[in-house]
Simulated assay, not measured.
Amino acid sequence: MTLVAAADGSALGNPGPAGWAWYVDDDRWASGGWPHGTNNMGELTAVLDLLQQTADLDDDLVVYCDSTYAINAITKWMAGWKRKGWKKGDGKPVANVEIMKALDAAMRPNVTFRWVKGHAGHELNEKADELANAAARAHQAGSSPAAGPGFSSRRSSHDFSVTAPPEPDPDLFSLVDELSDEDQVVALERSLLTDEVRSDPAAVAALLDAAWSEVGRSGRVWTRSEILGEIGPLTSPVELDVLGVDRVAEGVLLLRWRGTSAAGEGTLRSSLWVRSGGRWLQRFHQGTPEG
């Protein structure tokens, strides 16, 4: 037998009132959260609670997540972090380390993760998202979220707290500070084309200036809040070919590049990056179809 579930997290403000939830069907689901947490905490804790509550089942477990951060952290990065004493490649502590340690203890060989695009009509994902958001809003209102029927009476409070501010995927930029300014900007621009970043609004937000805007390939003008609400993995990979990086002023770089889709469609793009608080942030982006 195979048990299929979805796990999701939500944060209002990130960090802010936060929730987590997993859902199998109307008789088997659970949710919880914190008055102050992050989206990534919610994503990870939803998986953790599902693993803990199904620990005594013999069924194979398939878990749908819309966060590649959660999937990669558990299936790709966790073993290396553990070998390094729960440190990242740059030697810094792993964010949400207590949750990661609990996940390491709870994981088992018959668990498989599958990525699903959020807010795209996947029934289980939509239910998990709805429950996680409801949990976050309950904490925002000062009340306790519905715990759900779950699978067992052995419930944990999952009383985790924010141990680090929201950041891009943990190992993605561990060496970026060793690069030149120009190479840093190119690396960060490339990261905005990856599923790992585009699947995590918090990771995208960490790369965009507060006053960010874009004139898209279609001519549409996007605001920061609009793009964070709609961004997701690309439908097909895009190859980035650097045309030039110009230093417009101190702490301001203009990156010009060509994006080529798998179908060979080309777009000329320019991105204005500004250095703020010791970090490079994208301030403006524009795309023009190549003639």
Rank of each mutant, 00 (worst) to 15 (best):
M1Q: 08
T2D: 14
L3M: 15
L3E: 11
L3A: 09
A6F: 13
D8V: 06
N14W: 02
Y23F: 15
Y23Q: 02
V24T: 02
D25F: 06
D26T: 12
W29Q: 01
A30G: 10
W34N: 04
W34H: 11
G37N: 11
G37P: 10
N39P: 02
M41I: 08
M41A: 11
M41F: 07
T45K: 01
A46T: 07
A46K: 04
A46Q: 06
T54Y: 02
D56W: 05
D56P: 00
L57Y: 12
D59Y: 05
C65E: 06
S67C: 07
Y69W: 11
A73I: 02
A73V: 07
T75M: 06
T75D: 12
K84H: 03
K84N: 13
W86R: 04
D90Q: 04
G91A: 04
V94I: 05
K101F: 04
D104S: 09
P109K: 09
N110W: 07
N110E: 14
V111H: 04
V116R: 12
V116N: 05
V116I: 15
H119R: 10
A120F: 03
H122G: 01
L124K: 14
E126L: 00
K127W: 06
E130L: 12
A132W: 06
N133I: 05
A135C: 06
R137L: 12
A138R: 06
A138F: 03
A141Y: 01
A147P: 06
P149G: 07
G150Y: 12
F151P: 06
S152M: 01
S152N: 14
S153P: 00
R155T: 08
S156W: 04
H158R: 11
S161D: 07
P166W: 09
D169V: 13
P170T: 15
P170N: 10
D177A: 15
E178Q: 14
L179W: 13
S180H: 07
D183M: 12
V186L: 00
A187F: 02
A187L: 14
S191K: 00
E196M: 15
V197C: 09
R198A: 07
D200E: 12
V204D: 05
A206V: 13
A206W: 13
A206Q: 14
A206I: 13
L207Q: 15
D209S: 15
D209R: 14
A211K: 14
G216S: 14
S218F: 02
W222E: 03
T223W: 10
R224E: 13
I227Q: 13
L228V: 13
E230T: 11
I231R: 05
P233I: 01
T235H: 10
S236Q: 13
V245M: 07
E250W: 00
E250A: 10
R256E: 12
R258H: 02
G259E: 01
L268T: 10
R269D: 05
L272N: 00
S276T: 14
R279G: 08
L281R: 12
H285P: 00
G291P: 12
